[in-house]
């Protein structure tokens, strides 16, 4: 079985995190069902224009792919509102299309509030990748796993942790200091899926992905 996966997202950092993470979910799904397959990715550049027209364009271009993933941060803590504002109309238009112009296997990835919230869900893995020996409280990573989606500025939180770590480095060590951009695919590859299950936006994404995969393996 060959699975051709397409992705379009907001930025290159999000793309790195989400494609690596998504691939892990698909792999787990297939291995659990003892299915052998090859997975290839097509990354589609974001085009100028509204999210509605972007989704239509991407879905048309990805017509021959098996699944199209569309990522957009919720930006606030309301998944439904983000879905209604940015996805729903375009998805309906595509679902109603009877001419086969679009890829119908669309999956919205809408992290609340942003991709970086998903990166926060395992503090130890975040710290391992920053390569810091500082404690959670030193790094101001004082939030509960179940309340990550309420954290105000997840990206700022990671940046602050990195900043605190970098300040603790000696002058000589500073040349090895890390940037947030270095972390996306590393954490995407390591964050336990079981920890992500605490996040409602992740669960919605994973459930939809499994629904589409199920429909493909049990048509």
């Amino acid at each position: 079985m060959n699975l051709f996966l397409a992705f379009t997202g907001e930025g290159s950092s999000d793309t790195r995190f989400m494609t690596v993470l998504t691939e892990r979910i698909v792999e787990k799904f297939l291995l659990d069902r003892e299915i052998t397959a090859e997975l290839s990715w097509t990354i589609m550049p974001k085009k100028p224009g509204s999210s509605h027209s972007n989704i239509l364009k991407a879905s048309k271009e990805a017509k021959d792919q098996n699944i199209l993933f569309i990522h957009r941060d919720a930006d606030n803590n309301n998944w439904e509102r983000a879905y209604q504002n940015h996805f729903e109309t375009a998805f309906q238009e595509i679902t109603n299309d009877k001419d086969g112009l679009y890829n119908q296997n669309l999956i919205a990835i809408i992290p609340v509030k942003e991709t970086e919230a998903w990166m926060l869900c395992n503090k130890q893995i975040l710290k391992n990748n920053i390569e810091t020996a500082l404690s959670n409280s030193d790094l101001e990573l004082t939030y509960q796993l179940s309340r990550i989606e309420q954290v105000n500025d997840p990206k700022g939180k990671i940046q602050r942790a990195i900043e605190i770590h970098n300040q603790a480095l000696t002058k000589k060590q500073r040349r090895y200091s890390i940037k947030i951009g270095d972390l996306y695919d590393l954490i995407g590859n390591e964050v336990p899926l079981s920890d992500l299950e605490y996040l409602d936006s992740f669960v919605r994404f994973k459930n939809r992905l499994e629904e589409v995969l199920n429909s493909m393996v049990n048509p």
Partner: peptide
């Protein structure tokens, strides 16, 4: 040329191969 992920149910692992 690209690396794709091969999910191998027999070996119970996934790994990268060239296609």
């Amino acid at each position: 040329s690209r690396l794709v992920s091969k999910v191998d149910a027999t070996k119970k692992i996934s790994y990268k191969i060239t296609r």
